[in-house]
Design a protein around this nucleic acid. Structure first.
Lengths: 154, 154
DNA sequence: CTGCCACTTCAAGTCGACTTGAGGTCAAGA
DNA sequence: TCTTGACCTCAAGTCGACTTGAAGTGGCAG
């Protein structure tokens, strides 16, 4: 009988196409230890479909502002043996703080649009928002690089 | 009578001290058009106290992920004549999307901490979260650099 | 008047996350 | 078999936001 396998290994272009992640980035991620091909055909990398899910996870992590190093560390944890709950919880808390700051900022912007005070600095509401932000003491220092990130479904 | 002015101009070191922003950064911000000294004493820049508020605003903007260019543009609007409401609203919407993504991520992390499935990918809740994130179609591409940002009060 | 040193300028370096380009390899279709 | 061109490697470039360093200037305490 013919070979009927339906889910063959993917070549880098196919992974790029399905994930939306450029081939150059896939090579870079491999170099950084975030993904790994299951083998090679000649020089060419072969990936299995699982890489797509992994890329989705990476995209989500990036979207949330984690560095590639941090994501790699989480993956080590993801491997299954005892997740680093402390680390993950710390990250979640960090996100909470970021979300609060962003919310303040968003409200400030919406207010600025609606406010009729001659200058925003003269508007008590705006000043209150500023103060809230300042005292919320924004703390993170991680770049939250929101990148377009398409469904992994393909 | 003696000169009793109590709010004299600030030299760059004083602005740095009160705002927490390094002098090198203040020069850089000036170069980028975000702030301006009111004059010089010899070579030395003199700032008036208003710069502290402006720096607080800049910090807030940076915390929310705006680039220095974007912040500069908002300030032009801040000058008072007809705020660019369209721009501001767009920014607010952008923040809304970012906040949603971050919220998904945070929930995902908290779930990962609590979940007992052998691997996160086998957990339906986690997969649902991933899908939600993917379909929320994270869109921004601005780095949200959360930097420590202290109260401007001094 | 001197000298110190905080301030100045300008060029170059840094960091993360990639992208780009030159030059090379090789699987597969004609 | 030959050719094509997708894929490979490795080095260098890019971008934003700063920082660092070398070399110069000048306000002000002594």
């Amino acid at each position: 009988m013919r070979d009927e396998r339906v889910a063959p290994d993917l070549d880098i272009a196919e992974v790029a196409r399905r994930s939306g992640v450029p081939a150059s980035t896939l090579r870079y991620y491999e170099e950084r230890g975030l993904i790994a091909p299951i083998g090679r055909r000649g020089l060419r990398r072969l990936f299995d479909a699982g890489v797509l899910e992994r890329l989705a996870l990476i995209g989500l992590g990036r979207a949330a502002g984690f560095s590639l190093d941090e994501i790699a560390r989480m993956f080590a944890a993801d491997g299954r043996p005892a997740i680093d709950r402390v680390l993950l919880t710390a990250k979640a808390d960090e996100l909470d703080r970021t979300i609060r700051t962003l919310t303040v900022m968003r409200d400030g912007l919406r207010h600025a649009v609606a406010c009729t005070a001659p200058s925003h600095m003269e508007c008590p509401t705006f000043r209150r928002i500023l103060r809230a932000a300042a005292s919320g003491d924004v703390d993170g220092r991680k770049p939250v690089a929101l990148r377009p990130f398409r469904s992994v479904a393909g």
